[in-house]
Computed example of a mutant assay.
Amino acid sequence: MISNGLNVKELLELNGEKVFLKKLGKEYGDDYWKAISEGDIESTIFTGTQQVFNKENIENYLQNISLDSSRVDFIIFSKITKKVVGEVVLNDIYRNNRSSNIRIVIFNKQDFNKGYGTEALVLALQYGFGMLNLHRIELEALSFNERAIKVYEKVGFDKEGVKREGWYFNHRYHDLVIMSILEDGYRSKYIGNKYDLKAFL
């Protein structure tokens, strides 16, 4: 907590060269809904989400995550357009184990291959290992999503194994690739790099 009683994460902005992240809250509800509703369904499906969202779902979702201490949700803004291009979420945060899951989605294909996802991941890892003092951050990627797996490997995630037929969609089962990054691996790769984390008071 800071002196005026506000929670630091409510004021946090994670600042990169191409994107900046803001904690997702009701004040960004309209921007978030617009980005999701105009995005490609395929992008959301690749995160493992099978729910179809509407405006009411989003409002309830934002209310629920604001009360959930086991997650931190960020929306990704393009620095050029100042528009929401995606989200990155640290969830299933276990303080005792110092571990969490991470997931990311870029909503629209027109924003692929611009470096937004890579930079947003690094910024979220910086928050996880720095501000949350985590030791391990893991994810699961659909085995056929080779583009995403290459990005995760580039960022520093290692493959650990495969959850066989762990995801069911459209009458088929698909394997999930389990990947993780540990704090030592993150620190050796990124400490002293160009990414900057700032709290605006």
Rank of each mutant, 00 (worst) to 15 (best):
K159H: 09
M1P: 08
Y28Q: 02
A35I: 03
S69M: 06
D92W: 05
K9T: 11
T81S: 15
G5N: 07
N96Q: 11
M1W: 02
E160Q: 14
K82G: 02
V105R: 07
Y186N: 08
K83C: 08
L182G: 10
L139D: 00
Q51R: 02
N170T: 07
S78Y: 06
I41D: 10
I181G: 10
F144S: 08
R95I: 13
F112M: 06
D68I: 00
K198I: 06
E140R: 09
N4W: 00
Q110A: 08
I36D: 02
N101T: 09
L201F: 14
L11D: 12
N97D: 12
T118A: 06
F74N: 01
L176C: 04
Q126P: 00
G25R: 03
K34M: 10
V8K: 01
F107G: 09
I104N: 05
K150Y: 03
K198F: 09
F200N: 07
I181T: 13
D111V: 04
D73S: 14
I106H: 09
Y32F: 10
N113R: 08
E119T: 07
N113V: 01
F112G: 07
I2G: 01
A120D: 07
I137V: 15
K23S: 15
R136D: 13
V122F: 02
V122C: 05
M179F: 04
F74G: 02
R172N: 11
N15G: 09
